[in-house]
Amino acid sequence: MATGQDIPPDMEPVYQYPESLTSRFTHYCPGCTHGVIHRLIAEVIDELGIRERTVGVAPVGCAVLAYDYFNLDFCEAAHGRAPAMATGIKRVSPDTVVFTYQGDGDLAAIGTAEIIHAANRGELITTIFVNNAIYGMTGGQMAPTTLPGQVTTSSPGGRDVRMAGWPIKMAELIGVLPGAAYVTRQAVLDVPGIRRAKQAIRLAFRVQLAGLGFSMVEILSTCNTNWGLSPLEALEWAKAHMVPYYPLGDTKVADAVRALMEQA
């Protein structure tokens, strides 16, 4: 926030602190891209003018305290249950805009049933799914999205797919469900990717506002602390290893969503 500096009169703001974020410092590690994703969501909510009717549902995982950082009505779900909780909120308050913010353990392991059924019902909610291929908050254990061979504190020899199965591609899995109107995978690993991720988040919220069905943006993210890398190295590692396994792009764009895209 601008403090104590004079802004010349011919200077115009091009980036300002979003109203939909509180001023609290986040607890995220330095360089953690959760902060970027929070900011993108807040910017989209500001730009769509829906802050005063949006309700967020926080997960269990690193983003468990998301409600401290968003300047929105918020609740904290049990592990994996955010889509069910969001369903309850949206069904009794159809005029609110409801989104869940979930990590890979929350959404792709313990909460698999809830996300699949919420998507399949075409719940008018938006899910932001942060995939960093690891359990961050508990200290770096194998996630359902951990890559084959990836070393974690609970796969010390690297993920052995014969024992632990394969990483789940959630965007593809959800994309085949008829109730899902818009499903995409994005990454916040560089500036162009962050811009595209923001466009996707905006579209996902617009899909909800237009009542077209369930929308989800999977976002490839980093966990430099548990990967044992610097913040910058983590961006490069994700590009080199995650993006090839988790291809970026839309896995579901319903016809009505395509029409919506053309309107914009």
């Binding site: 200077m11 115009e12 980036y15 300002q16 900011r39 500036v191 811009r195």
Partner: peptide, 21 residues
């Protein structure tokens, strides 16, 4: 240049960016 790339990549909303009209 006021390109705002720093603000776009920043996870902690450190930057406010202005550009000359």
């Amino acid at each position: 240049t006021g390109c705002a790339m720093c603000a776009i990549i920043c996870p902690d909303v450190v930057f406010t960016v202005y550009r000359r009209r």
